[in-house]
Design a binder for these strands. Structure first.
Lengths: 208, 187
DNA sequence: GCTTTAAAAAGTAAAAT
DNA sequence: ATTTTACTTTGCAAAGC
């Protein structure tokens, strides 16, 4: 009886210590990313589940925290790339991505398929674009999805191209370079998605 | 549907002196600090073999069972030619078959991701939907183009079953759309 | 876990032209 | 600005760290 109690107490204290350290990391990374409290709370819930299922064993607390944050952002639809989150950890993107996939497979965490529209708000506000332009970009993305042009493509690249087009149409032109930079993709990707969108959706741009 | 790669293990019930092989057999790579196996590349059939001191080897790159068997025979013949003594006959076991297939339809990956169980679809990380099938136990990478990769099979039969099964399943779930412009094939 | 091998799918990236 | 090369994902064995 005592044995059982002791083992349980020992495990609980180990979980508590792990959680305490993880919450510090979560707070640190979350603040560096400027995430709202709701995202941090959600990430904390996911991380707690992971610890209780023993998924953190053999992995760094930091990378599992980062993966929890990414999952939380996806659930709450706060657009953040894995690279943005991983940059504040010692782990690389690949390690955080593998932890994220582990969370998806082992926990009952439902994460919706990422929607390029979620990136529009973030990219648009970072570039100081108007709400009308962001709305137009979202409409372009909706048409692209219905035309089957978005499957398998990086949502950040699709959003970047849609914003490039929408900004051109609304006389708020931004260069592909600056859009690519804030979207976290290369200029080549923006150009490729742009070409495909205007061609397949038959978009005519009057402004040079 | 075509088999792209077969990974197999070959057991020779004897110990091998990899240092001696490195000295006498041309075009082999052996760096025990980097990897315990000696790398031997056969030009035809084009396969690569990892040979271990235990007498076990891994043969990769074959595109059919016939090609695999022919390759193993030639590897052993080549080793014998350069003075490596090999007794007994090799036991060949297929460990993994990688195949590709084309359903010639467009797949709605967003819909499939919602309706299929045991799948992962993360377009920011990889363009294909990853589906883990229980029976046969294989993993499929499904692309919107209708093309796919099947891996994890140990028999060719499992590959055929898996392709048939996933096509029927995607069809039932209404995730498939015919490709109107079935172009190409010019003379 | 890692190391090494092979091969496909489609997208993205980086370097070369 | 295009082309080439390379890396992302999946499955698997080998022996050793």
């Amino acid at each position: 009886r005592w044995r059982k109690w002791q083992i349980r107490a020992r495990i609980q204290s180990s979980i508590d210590r792990n959680l305490a350290q993880a919450m510090n990391e979560l707070e640190r990374i979350g603040n560096l990313l400027g995430l709202p409290k709701s995202v941090k709370d959600e990430a904390a819930l996911i991380y707690r589940k992971a610890v209780e299922k023993g998924l953190v064993r053999g992995r760094s607390i930091e990378s599992v925290v980062a993966a929890s944050i990414y999952a939380s952002c996806r659930r709450i639809k706060i657009a953040r790339t894995l690279d943005e989150i991983a940059q504040y950890t010692k782990a690389n993107r690949k390690e955080v991505a593998r932890c994220y996939r582990l969370l998806l497979r082992e926990l009952n965490v439902e994460v919706p398929v990422s929607d390029p529209k979620d990136y529009v708000t973030r990219i648009g506000s970072l570039l100081g674009l108007s709400g009308a332009t962001m709305k137009l970009a979202a409409e372009i993305l909706e048409k692209a999805k219905n035309a089957g042009l978005t499957a398998g493509k990086d949502p950040a690249g699709l959003a970047a191209a849609a914003i490039y087009i929408a900004a051109l149409m609304n006389d708020e032109r931004r260069t592909q370079k600056e859009i690519a930079q804030v979207a976290g993709v290369t200029e080549v990707t923006v150009r490729n998605r742009y070409k495909e969108l205007i061609q397949e959706l038959k978009i005519e741009i009057q402004n040079q | 549907m075509s088999i792209e790669n077969i990974v197999a293990t070959v057991t020779l019930d004897q110990q091998l002196d990899l240092y001696a092989m490195e000295r006498s057999v041309p075009n082999v790579e052996y760096d025990p600090d980097q990897f315990p196996g000696l790398i031997f590349r056969l030009e035809s059939p084009k396969v690569t073999s990892l040979i271990f001191k235990s007498g076990k080897m891994v043969v990769t790159g074959a595109k059919s069972t016939e090609e695999l068997i022919k390759a193993v025979k030639r590897i052993i013949k080549t080793l014998k030619k350069y003075g490596i003594k090999i007794t007994g006959k090799p036991k060949i076991q297929i460990q993994n078959i990688v195949a590709s297939a084309n359903m010639h339809v467009h797949v709605n990956l967003d819909k499939a991701a919602f309706l299929l169980e045991n799948n992962m679809y993360e377009p920011e990380q990889f363009p294909g939907l990853i589906f883990r099938m229980d029976d046969p136990r294989v993993v499929l990478l499904i692309f919107s183009s209708g093309k796919m990769v099947i891996t994890g099979a140990k028999r060719e039969e499992e590959v055929y079953k898996a392709v048939k099964k996933i096509f029927d399943k995607l069809n039932e779930l209404d995730c498939i759309k015919p490709i109107e412009e079935e172009e190409e094939l010019e003379i």
